[in-house]
Design a protein around this nucleic acid. Structure first.
Lengths: 347, 347
DNA sequence: CTGAAAGCGCTTACAG
DNA sequence: CTGAAAGCGCTTACAG
């Protein structure tokens, strides 16, 4: 049995497809008698509109695409809920694409946008998709000059991009986290950074260095180790730090997962957290609070970040031009039990 | 500047749109000279096919929809990666819809399928969408008899549904978990169950009861508490259990988050885990291993579940009829440090 | 190997 | 308030 089309509905209701279309999209432009009749037939035939046909005709889709580097990361899932909520308010559906940290997948999803399968794009992966209106064509004419659809960047800033960005002040937040360790008397403070290419890595590392400089603390290159935001990489990083000639007593990790991994490894090494080593994370994911010890960390307003991003998309969708403004939301430093005063003996 | 269409490409390459279409979809059906010329123009104009137009014409979309009850739950995110991997192999893109445990959102997403925005559907939320070909129409003729697109159910079985289901044997896995506690000498074993309507809740509760019966252990109604799979609900449940007249020494939680929440609360109460109370979880999410204590739990082959589900969809997409078979994958019981022998004094 | 033409299922000015 | 008709951008038998 073939799916019913609008034509079937029209025939059965004894009206034109134009009227059916109106009855569904703008009910008050149709007499109430016809509307009722049409609605009955729609139910009867179990009619559902063909989204492709409507999209083709109206040149919009009612969908927004969100490109995420890793859907398994709790940081993103909460943010996505914010996007969803706002999208619902605006009557848009959200299409999520997981790039698994890869550029190839990111291109695949971005192409969905180019193919007009979505009306807007939220980028969480810090990459400019190659389409995005920047390509210089073979005859050296840069075209088109602007994107044809709203794009908003979240969390992982894309320097020089023409799109609005929603995020926090990572440098300041990182600096504050490290100053907290310094205030507690720690003088050998290490940093477990994110992956090297990542923009957040640079920003948080900058905050780390600034705090060391401000506090007059040394910056031993051994104390800077790179991870990839995973628990496993936090463990690996900690193993390196633990065998440093000058072992750090404070560690600032660029996210909570790496902080947790580090703590597990520090304890396996026979040291106490925070007794021997204090550890600070970043993000404040749900598990941070119930981890042992509960993690001192930087809380990002993840839900709000998602909401704001989608709200911006909504404005773009309504025809407003989106400037390259930066929306900087407040982060919050949350002190829990993974940090403590440095042991006097160690100083 | 308007987006280039196939017509623009055709004109500029001096061929018909038919040839452009072929050059893009079936390159070897076009002479290599033309193919090259067309490809150059495509690059030049930055042409991307209009997915709506193609979908409308070909009556397919190259997309598969996955309906998830909660994208923030690590159980699902890993499963989604399995879906993604397999989808990529089959050249399909994955559209994820988060229902946030609600029926309303589930309907919204399911409607996307009805509207032909996807070619197949993977249901992780244990609900039959109201469309799905089961509705009885107003004139009492049940139609259509079968779904018009492949549907696969994962994890949360839908009893009586005509679709293939991928999952584990939850009853057996739960029974095994509880027998583990019984074997350790625990005689007062509680269960933190999932939410009441959920199918998994019933299955795991059944396993719990079967194990008690087999071990000749009492089943105090006070020891059965319902949660909602969240950390917070695990904490609430533990608070109830801790004030039972006959306090349990073993707890089987229906997922890892609730187990973790319970452990936090048990410790806050002044008891040791596993010293005073042993706790078993379910799922083996990433955090289970680095939790303190590392969680004894049931490992579900999440990635494989996703892969298998998508593989089934793939077969359906190739025209094969999908039977209502159950694909039962092996789970694994993982013993870690959250369980220990019952204290003899307590017996 | 290539093109002319029909048609996928809608929406929307336009006319009445 | 309603309908006839054009057209959105593709694909694909069919003919050559």
């Amino acid at each position: 049995m073939a799916t019913a089309t609008m034509k079937d509905v029209a025939r059965r209701a004894g009206v034109s497809t134009a009227t059916v279309s109106r009855a569904l999209a703008q009910p008050d432009r149709v007499s109430s008698e016809l509307r009722r009749r049409i609605e009955a037939v729609v139910r009867d035939l179990d009619y559902t509109i063909n989204a492709s046909a409507r999209s083709l005709r109206r040149n919009d889709t009612g969908m927004v695409l969100v490109v995420v580097p890793d859907i398994g990361n709790p940081f993103f899932s909460k943010l996505l809920k914010g996007v969803e909520l706002q999208a619902r308010k605006l009557a848009y559906a959200v299409l999520i694409g997981d790039t698994e940290h890869g550029a190839a997948r990111a291109e695949v999803y971005a192409r969905q946008l180019e193919a007009r399968r979505a009306d807007g794009l939220i980028l969480l992966n810090g990459r400019t998709p190659s389409f995005a209106g920047f390509r210089v064509t073979s005859n050296a004419v840069p075209r088109p000059l602007g994107p044809r659809y709203p794009i908003v960047v979240v969390s992982e800033r894309i320097p020089g991009s023409p799109w609005p960005t929603v995020g926090i002040d990572n440098v300041a937040a990182a600096e504050r986290a490290v100053l907290h360790l310094a205030d507690l008397g720690h003088r050998r403070i290490a940093h477990i950074a994110g992956p090297k290419g990542n923009i957040l890595t640079g920003e948080r590392r900058r905050g780390y260095r600034a705090a060391l400089a401000k506090s007059g603390l040394p910056a031993d290159p051994d104390w800077l180790v790179y991870g990839d935001f995973s628990i496993a990489s936090g463990r690996r990083a900690a193993r390196k730090l633990l065998v440093c000639p000058a072992r750090p007593t404070g560690v600032f990790a660029a996210n909570d997962e790496m902080a947790m991994g580090a703590i597990v490894e520090i304890r396996a090494f026979g040291l106490a957290v925070p007794g021997d080593v204090s550890v600070v994370g970043f993000d404040d994911i749900e598990f941070a609070e119930i981890f042992d010890p509960p993690l001192t960390t930087v809380r990002q307003p993840r839900f709000e970040m998602g909401q704001r991003a989608m709200a911006l998309i909504g404005r773009g969708l309504r025809g407003e031009a989106l400037a390259a403004e930066e929306v900087i939301l407040e982060s919050e430093f949350v002190v829990r039990a993974s940090t403590a005063r440095a042991a006097p003996a160690k100083r």
